[in-house]
């Protein structure tokens, strides 16, 4: 793995908390990772591990009650003269002009639910044209022409007619393609795909993933792919971040994560993938227990109550740090302490 180029986006010690009457939910609690140009970073974890909140934190569109408490989100931008400047998105006000200029133009987002992610009151064309004109000084007719081209690019048949339809008139697969077209409308550098295929059936899923790969090659996109599906990660990702309760427990290149997982949680996640080679009628491996309630996080390593290699007196008292393991892998577990 030669990662000679510099990361386009670096998340450092990101903490996003939700303040609620019942207490503070630490949805993201010190996550750090890098995204490199033209590569795909997969973020995996069970539901509620903070994957989506991480994505929304990067765009600063966290739901009401949530706030970035600490950390940096560093976006590297070319200034034109061969130099780079680095902008910390976490320092920008979410509704400020500068934050809005980056959101949707340099970093775009596609969602899990293509059905409800479009307004049923506006045609898909209206919503794409809005996105185009928000970041580019073009006329309505030019934007419309551009929108039709985008729809054609993502493989929508008869785009000049589809543009005037409403989202509820399109199939799930088409809707997700329109979503991708809208996200790409202002040539983003980074595309965040939050469970882009979860709501689709398997064949459509494969088509959408293929489309994403093809667009990545054409445009040199960096993709952050958020999913709980290890199969999708294996197919798409170059690098993997494994999250558990808002923390990164392990990260590294996809081959090493799959072939030499270090963290007990990663190992168990991989063991719970159904395999076509498994003997019939053998029970699928599961991870014992369930994710703790966000209001009472376990002390120490958040995974210790479910961990088969739990070391009493250590894991439930101290919090492990991410430490380098091997060439490119990092893991946060006391088993690998020097």
């Amino acid at each position: 793995m030669q990662q000679t180029s510099q990361p386009i986006l670096s998340v450092r010690n990101l903490k996003t908390y939700f303040h609620q009457d019942e207490g503070i939910v630490r949805a993201v609690d010190g996550a750090s990772f890098d995204i490199y140009p033209g590569r795909t970073l997969g973020i995996v974890g069970e539901s509620g591990c903070g994957k989506s909140v991480t994505a929304r934190s990067i765009l600063q569109i966290v739901d009401k009650g949530g706030r970035i408490e600490d950390g940096e989100i560093l976006l590297r931008r070319a200034t034109g003269n061969g130099q780079n400047d680095i902008l910390d998105l976490a320092k920008l006000k979410p509704d400020s002009r500068q934050a809005r200029a980056i959101r949707g133009s340099e970093i775009a987002l596609i969602f899990q639910e293509p059905m409800t992610s479009f307004s049923p009151f506006h045609t898909v064309g209206n919503q794409i044209i809005e996105a185009i004109r928000l970041h580019k000084p073009v006329s309505r007719t030019e934007a419309r022409q551009e929108a039709i081209e985008l729809l054609r690019m993502v493989g929508i048949p008869r785009p000049d007619r589809r543009i005037d339809e409403y989202s509820f008139q399109l199939s799930g697969g088409l809707r997700q393609r329109v979503m991708i077209a809208m996200a790409l409308s202002s040539d983003p550098k980074v595309l965040i795909a939050d469970e882009p295929t979860t709501a689709l059936d398997v064949t459509t899923q494969a088509q959408v993933l293929e489309l994403l790969q093809q667009l990545q090659e054409e445009k040199g996109l960096s993709i952050i792919l958020i999913t709980h599906d290890m199969g999708v990660i294996a197919e798409m990702a170059d690098d993997v971040v494994v999250m558990y309760l808002g923390r990164v427990v392990e990260q590294g290149p996809v081959d090493e994560i799959f072939h030499a997982p270090k963290h007990p949680y990663t190992r168990m996640l991989l063991r719970s993938i159904p395999s076509i080679l498994a003997r019939p009628r053998t029970k699928l491996a599961t991870i014992a227990g369930s994710i703790p309630h966000p209001y009472n996080r376990p002390a120490g390593c958040p995974f210790h109550p479910r961990c088969p290699e739990f070391m009493p007196g250590k894991c439930d008292v101290l919090e492990p740090e991410l430490v380098r393991q091997g060439e490119n892998q990092e893991v946060s577990c006391f088993l690998y302490e020097e």
Partner: peptide
Amino acid sequence: KPYVVTARAKGLAETRVIAKYPVRA
């Protein structure tokens, strides 16, 4: 609803997001 987040993710200003999408609905 998710379409509000979509509108925000485009980079629309918050007041415009609310006036165009959820208020309409």
